[in-house]
Amino acid sequence: MSSSSVGSNNLSRSETSTTTETYHSSLGPVNITSFDSMQEIAIHDSNSSSGQQSIASVHRHHHHRPATLPLTPPLSGSNDMIQSSAIITAANSYGPNKNTPMDALKEWSLSTYKCTKQLINEKLGKCSRTVDADLEIEIEKLRETQHKYENILKLSRDMSNQYQTIIATQNSMYEHLNELALRETKSPTAAAVMNSDSERTLVNNLSQDFKQNAEMMKSIARNGDKLLMALGFFISNLTTLVYKTIEDTIITIRAFEAARLEYDAERNCLNGLMYSSTNAGPSSGTTSTATATSMNSEKMHQVRTRYERLKEDVAIKMKFLDENKAKVMHKQLVLFHNAFAAFASGNAAALDSTLKQFSIRPQPSSFLEK
């Protein structure tokens, strides 16, 4: 028997044995034959002229590394993330379909890594960042304005709660004074001791005093309820302004700042690749460096377009916010001033006029009033 036939028989026996062997990885047993088949397809597509020789080479070394991708020795430390990204990039080069979940994960991971690195370098002052001084000053003013409006809103709510407590106390005071006014008038003890007109007048005056103070407390509590209605209207509109109108602009600003960070990360990454390709001499990695530079340049162009669009959106929203804020707060401050001035002076008619001016009506307390 010739040496060629012996080699072919050995190869056949090797192929037969691989169908039953398994590779025990950290994810469980993996069939080596499936890996070999994928290797044969990949190698056949990449180099059809030497397909049989490559397949035989793969079968001879499948016990050492049954993976379908050319892997490098594992790195240690912070380079694990870089190597993982490199492996994923190599995997995508074998497949015609690039829109897979693994592609999305790879892109998200690389973007997060770049942005985190950019943010840390900015904090340490090791890299440059895009700065629009005028816009950043306006953004900082808006954040301070939102903070001050939140403080006014908090104080208004505290004031409303305190007035509710005071009004509840005034209503309780009215009930007790009114009850005492009735008791002093119909008290049997008081009727028994009344022996003269002066004593009868004194008892009647005491009853009248209780009744007068009860009516005063009732009137103040009624005006306090109207003040609470005006204050509630003020709080409602201020809440809408702070947590919806201003917050909508703040959300756009956050998106703009995230786009700025991503743009700077891609820009500095591209500058680093261009610097490396310029200073490095001719080597086998020149083609891969040029490809990476081209991909990063396209990505940077997309991110820059998004950054500039969000920058325009922020400028427009801040302009409209200033106009809307001026209109809303002018109306609410007029209400706040007139309501408290009328309440403090005890002018019930002016307080009613203020509520009517702003179309403020009391909420029905029961279904019969609806």
Rank of each mutant, 00 (worst) to 15 (best):
K244Q: 15
T245Q: 08
E247Q: 09
T249K: 01
T252V: 12
T252N: 06
T252C: 09
F256I: 01
F256R: 02
A259M: 05
R260V: 00
Y263I: 01
E266C: 10
N268K: 03
C269A: 15
M274H: 05
S276A: 08
S277D: 10
T278G: 02
N279Y: 02
N279H: 08
A280H: 01
G281S: 03
S283W: 02
S284Y: 03
S288V: 13
A290R: 05
T291S: 02
T291D: 04
A292C: 09
M295H: 12
M295F: 08
K299H: 06
K299T: 05
Q302R: 15
Q302N: 15
R304G: 06
R304M: 15
R304A: 13
T305S: 12
E308P: 05
R309Y: 06
L310A: 04
K311F: 04
D313S: 14
A315S: 13
A315W: 05
I316F: 14
I316A: 13
I316Y: 12
K317F: 14
K317H: 14
K317A: 13
M318S: 05
L321K: 06
D322L: 07
D322C: 07
N324T: 10
K327E: 07
K327F: 08
V328M: 13
M329D: 02
Q332M: 11
V334H: 13
L335D: 01
F336Q: 04
F336H: 10
F336Y: 15
H337T: 07
A339F: 02
A344E: 07
S345E: 11
N347T: 00
A348W: 01
A349I: 07
A349E: 09
A350S: 12
Q357N: 10
Q357F: 03
S359R: 14
P362I: 07
